[in-house]
C-alpha cells in the first residue's frame, strides 16, 4: 500500500475505501521490464503491528514504487518465525516471495525450530539495525555494565526476562558468554513489550531491549538504561555508556534483513537490492527511521554474506553453549 501524502481530507476517506482497489489496478501486466511484473509477496514472520512488521511496511511502500510492482505484506506467524521462513524457503525461487526478518531467523534455526536453517534462503540486503541495551527499574542500584556483570557473577541471582530461544534470550546469553560462572534466573516473560511490563511491575530485575523499546520509559524516569552493546554510543541515548567503554567489548544488534528463497536468479536479487538501496538512501525514510532509533545500516553482496556468516557462527556457538 502506498504512503498517503497530505491530501484533502475527503480524498483520504475515499482512499480508505479505494486504496486496495488501486493496489489491484497496479498489478496489470508490466510493459518494459521482465521482473517484477507481478505483485511481490513479502512474508513477515512476526505479528502484525509489532516493530518488525511496522518496519517492513515502512520500507515496502517506497520500494514497491521504485520496483514498479506492488508489495503485499503478509504476516505468517508461529514457531518463533520458523513457519513463515520455511514457507518462503519452500516457495518458487522467482523473486515473487520474499522474507523480512532479523536475528530471529538465526536463533530459531540454532534452536532447532527452523530445521531448514538460514542456508535455505539467499540474503538480498540488510537495511537497518537497532542497538541492544539492558535496562533496570529506576530504583535499582545497577548503574553500569560493571554492576551488571558483578550481579550475574555473585550470589544475588538476578531475574532476567526472556522469551526462550528468541532474540532477547540470545542477547543475554551473548553477554554472559564471557562470565565463567554466572548465576541468573531466566524468567520467561516474552518479547520487548511484555519484558517492559514485567520490569516496571518488579517481576524481573533486568530486561534487554532495543533502544526504541526503552526510550520513552527512560525519558519518563521509570527505567534506567544501564549500558548499550554497540561500538559507539547510541545517538538516542547519548548519556548511556557502551559496554566497550566499561571494558566489556560486546556488540549486539538487531539487524533487519530481507531474504529470497535459495537459488533465486542473481539478477533478480540485484534488482531487489538496487531498489532497497534506493529506499534506504532516501532522506525522508532515513529521518523516519532515526526518529524511531532505527539506524540505517545498508549492506549487500559479499559484505552481507560475510557478516551474516559471522553472525550465524556466533549464534550457533551460543546455542551450543546452552545445550
Amino acid at each position: 500500500m502506498t504512503l498517503i501524502p497530505t491530501k484533502t481530507r475527503r480524498a483520504m476517506i475515499r482512499a480508505i475505501l479505494a486504496a486496495p482497489l488501486g493496489l489491484a489496478a497496479l498489478t496489470g501486466p508490466a510493459l518494459a521490464q521482465a521482473y517484477p511484473e507481478e505483485p511481490i509477496r513479502l512474508v513477515v514472520p512476526h505479528g502484525a503491528g509489532g516493530g518488525t512488521d511496522v518496519f517492513s511496511r515502512l520500507i515496502a511502500a517506497p520500494t514497491a514504487e521504485t520496483l514498479g510492482a506492488s508489495i503485499a505484506v503478509v504476516n505468517v506467524t508461529g514457531g518463533g518465525t520458523a513457519i513463515g521462513a520455511q514457507e518462503v524457503a519452500r516457495s518458487d525461487p522467482d523473486g515473487y516471495t520474499l522474507l523480512s526478518t532479523h536475528v530471529a531467523l538465526l536463533t530459531s534455526s540454532a534452536m532447532g525450530a527452523n530445521q531448514m536453517g538460514p542456508d535455505s534462503l539467499t540474503p538480498i540486503a540488510q537495511l537497518a539495525s537497532e542497538t541492544q541495551v539492558i535496562a533496570v527499574r529506576a530504583d535499582s542500584p545497577m548503574a553500569s555494565a560493571g554492576d551488571f556483570f558483578d550481579a550475574v557473577a555473585d550470589d544475588s541471582r538476578p531475574k532476567l526476562g526472556i522469551s526462550a530461544g528468541a532474540g532477547n534470550h540470545f542477547a543475554f546469553l551473548q553477554m554472559l558468554m564471557n562470565v565463567p560462572d554466572y548465576d541468573v534466573n531466566f524468567v520467561p516473560v516474552g518479547g520487548g513489550g511484555p519484558s517492559m511490563t514485567a520490569l516496571l511491575g518488579g517481576n524481573i530485575d533486568v530486561g534487554t531491549f532495543t533502544v526504541s523499546e526503552v526510550l520513552d520509559q527512560v525519558a519518563a524516569g521509570e527505567v534506567r538504561a544501564v549500558t548499550v552493546f554497540a561500538a559507539e554510543r547510541d545517538p538516542a541515548l547519548p548519556d548511556v555508556a557502551t559496554a566497550t567503554e566499561a571494558g566489556f567489548p560486546i556488540e549486539i544488534g538487531l539487524d533487519y534483513v530481507w531474504y529470497a528463497p535459495k537459488d533465486t536468479p542473481t539478477d533478480r536479487i540485484a534488482t531487489l537490492a538496487d531498489a532497497l538501496e534506493t529506499t534506504m538512501a532516501d532522506e525522508t525514510i532515513r529521518t523516519t527511521l532515526t526518529e524511531r532509533a532505527i539506524l540505517p545500516n545498508f549492506l549487500r553482496g559479499d559484505a552481507l554474506e560475510a557478516t551474516l556468516a559471522e553472525r550465524w557462527e556466533t549464534i550457533q556457538s551460543v546455542a551450543a553453549s546452552i545445550r
Partner: peptide, 26 residues
C-alpha cells in the same frame, strides 16, 4: 504507561508512533 493492554493496543500504538507520537509514560 505506554503498555498495550491488548493486541489491538499494539496497533493503536503503532498508528501513533508512525505519526511521531510517542506512546509512553510521558
Amino acid at each position: 504507561m505506554g503498555i498495550p493492554g491488548s493486541i489491538i493496543d499494539v496497533f493503536l500504538i503503532a498508528a501513533l508512533t508512525i505519526n511521531n507520537i510517542r506512546v509512553g509514560p510521558l
